[in-house]
Amino acid sequence: MRKNIAYVFVLLLTVACSSKGNREHVTATPEQDDPKIITAGGTITEIVHALGHGDAIVATDRTSTYPSQMQTLPSIGYRNQIQAEGILSLNPDWILVEEHYLNQDVVTQLQNSGKQVTVLPKPQSEEAAAALIKEIGGMLEEKERAEGLIEQLTQDLETLRGLKAENDTQPKVAFIMSRGPEMVFLAGKNTFASAMIALSGGQPVEVDFEGMKPLTPEALPALNPDYILMFESGFQASGGKEGLRAIQGITETNAWKKDQFVVMDGHYVSSFGPRLGQAAIELFEKTHP
């Protein structure tokens, strides 16, 4: 199987090289049983590992926290810190990149290097999650394993639908990202947070912006969420609930008064990968006691 993957990789690489007239020819042979892969994006990393190819990953980025052994590999950094030179110095055969994760000039440098570069979308829905698993499974010639992951995801989401049918309340949930009292952001529309909250039977707080926006002092009292969702890392960095007291307006919310903070691993709740259904079930249970 690994030789087949290597052979497919060689064909892809040959096509990529021949499509660029100014690109030097890169030699590769089917004897390369284990193409060295670098991943940039935690969801991609998790899927590659779940498909049985974690041992082919030679380096990855800081968002690739699952499984935990991925963090023992050399790190290429985080988002804007990542440079093409650092990736290329590790001499990978294949670079899998999450769309919009790296600066475009870095992606262009990688593409012009003669290495095989594949840019993949970041899913924010159950359909997109299944599609990405299927796409990476096809690239790695792991169709059956990919189908198994999708089947498990489908079963998890079916379980979630059953739970929501039994309890159809929709508590208001706000996601805030805290990097200290002076750096607090609120999630708006078209974010992983709004998608995950809705999938998990909650109601994202109503805002008039997209993406993440700095939290204003009057925002939380006006929105008055029933629950506040946070990453574990941000909650701990803020000093726990008492540390969050420094955020203006937070003590006026129902979430604060009822001690309804939901703290989850950042990659787990935001990745929309193979464990999407499990994460959504956990969030449902925490917001629908």
Rank of each mutant, 00 (worst) to 15 (best):
R2W: 12
R2Q: 09
K3P: 15
N4K: 13
Y7R: 13
L11H: 05
L12C: 14
V15M: 08
N22T: 12
R23P: 13
E24F: 14
H25G: 13
V26F: 12
A28V: 09
A28R: 14
A28D: 09
Q32L: 14
D33F: 15
D33P: 07
D33L: 11
P35R: 06
A40S: 08
A40W: 02
G41V: 03
T43H: 02
V48G: 00
H49T: 07
L51C: 00
G54R: 03
D55I: 09
A59L: 04
R62F: 03
S64V: 01
Y66L: 10
Y66A: 05
P67N: 11
Q69Y: 11
M70C: 06
Q71S: 14
T72S: 07
P74D: 08
S75Y: 05
Y78I: 01
R79I: 15
R79C: 07
N80A: 11
P92N: 10
D93I: 10
D93W: 14
I95A: 00
V97C: 00
E99I: 02
Q104D: 05
Q104P: 07
T108A: 10
G114K: 11
T118K: 07
T118H: 08
L120G: 03
P121E: 10
A128C: 10
M139C: 02
L140A: 04
E141A: 15
E144C: 10
D156T: 07
E158I: 08
E158N: 13
T159E: 15
T159M: 12
L160C: 14
L163D: 06
K164S: 06
A165V: 04
E166H: 08
K172Q: 07
M177R: 13
V184K: 02
G188A: 04
I197G: 05
A198W: 02
A198Y: 02
Q203L: 13
E206L: 11
E206P: 05
M212L: 04
L215D: 09
T216W: 12
A219Q: 14
P221R: 09
Y227K: 09
I228P: 04
F231K: 09
S233M: 08
G234S: 01
S238E: 12
G240V: 08
G243F: 05
Q248H: 15
I250Y: 03
I250S: 12
I250K: 04
N254H: 12
W256F: 00
K258F: 15
M264K: 07
G266S: 08
P274Y: 02
L276Y: 04
I281D: 12
I281L: 13
F284T: 04
